[in-house]
Design a protein around this nucleic acid. Structure first.
Length: 262
DNA sequence: ATGTCACACCGTGTGTGA
């Protein structure tokens, strides 16, 4: 695989965010984009606009909610695609899509939020994370290199949370969620690309900020978005960073893009 | 500040999901 720039970005509606996505593509020239929360019907997917910008795409749609897509720059080979995750709680929610890109499997996921610890959706979240671990273990066993990226709705440790006390008793910070995340890394043989390059005890950089109450302006965010390459690819990591500028300006998503060069 | 944004629906607001 030649040097690639890969991006994960929860865009919170592809339709609303298309101008910012095209702006981002023009500025940063990514080779692969993993997009979550497309919130677009199949027929509403802006394939022609993306083709005009130089990208082929695969979209797994759930209509008005969730939805994930992989965009691949012209010149890279977009091969086999897979829609859905074996064993996921509700396949109709469209939270997992895979595509072979020049022989490397790119995977884009939007993990179930969970809402609250006493919600059935929280059990579904843990089940989804377990199914993801099974899937990456299967792929690893088949000898495949991969890059799994997306919005995991989990922080890995308290560095990833602006105020751990404020989240006590809530989702996104629980030890069982974090353990489920670590199991994905272990069983898939994957590396947290951002932490691989930025592991200072005081490194506090976030990828999501609530739209409300000026949280972005106040620096109150969470690190929820990840790029997880196979260990065999991680040695080639040159850079991994968060493009905070795309959380600003006109009609931003509540997530910033996470970019890795490898 | 319980503070915003985006979706669908016959809608000029309300419910749902984040």
């Amino acid at each position: 695989m030649p040097r690639v720039r890969i991006v994960t970005w929860n865009v919170n509606s592809l339709k609303m965010r298309l101008p910012r996505i095209l702006e981002f593509a023009e500025l940063h020239q990514p080779d692969v984009l993993l997009l979550q929360e497309t919130k677009a019907e199949v027929a509403a997917f802006p394939a022609l606009e993306l083709e005009a910008a130089g990208y082929q795409s695969v979209h797994h749609s759930a209509g008005r909610w969730a939805g994930v897509a992989i965009l691949v720059r012209d010149g890279l080979e977009l091969g086999e695609t897979v829609l859905g995750l074996p064993g996921e709680p509700d396949p109709a929610e469209a939270r997992w899509v895979e595509a072979q890109v020049d022989g490397t499997r790119m995977i884009c996921t939007y993990v179930i939020n969970g809402r609250a610890l006493d919600s059935p959706l929280y059990a579904d979240k843990l089940a989804f994370l377990a199914a993801a671990a099974d899937r990456v273990a299967t792929l690893r066993g088949a000898g495949e290199d991969m890059i799994l990226g997306g919005d995991f709705n989990v922080t890995r440790d308290d560095r990833d949370v602006y105020d751990a006390a404020a989240f006590e008793g809530g989702t996104h910070v629980q030890p069982e969620e974090r353990a489920a995340f670590d199991t994905i890394l272990e069983r898939g043989g994957l590396v947290d690309a951002y932490r691989h390059l930025h592991d200072d005890p005081d490194d506090r950089h976030y990828t999501w900020w609530d739209y409300r109450a000026g949280h972005f302006h106040k620096g109150l965010g969470l690190r929820l978005d990840y790029l997880l390459p196979s260990q065999s690819l991680a040695g080639r990591l040159e850079a991994c960073g968060i493009e905070r500028d795309f959380r600003k300006g006109t009609k931003p998503s509540d997530h910033a893009p996470l970019v890795a060069d490898l």
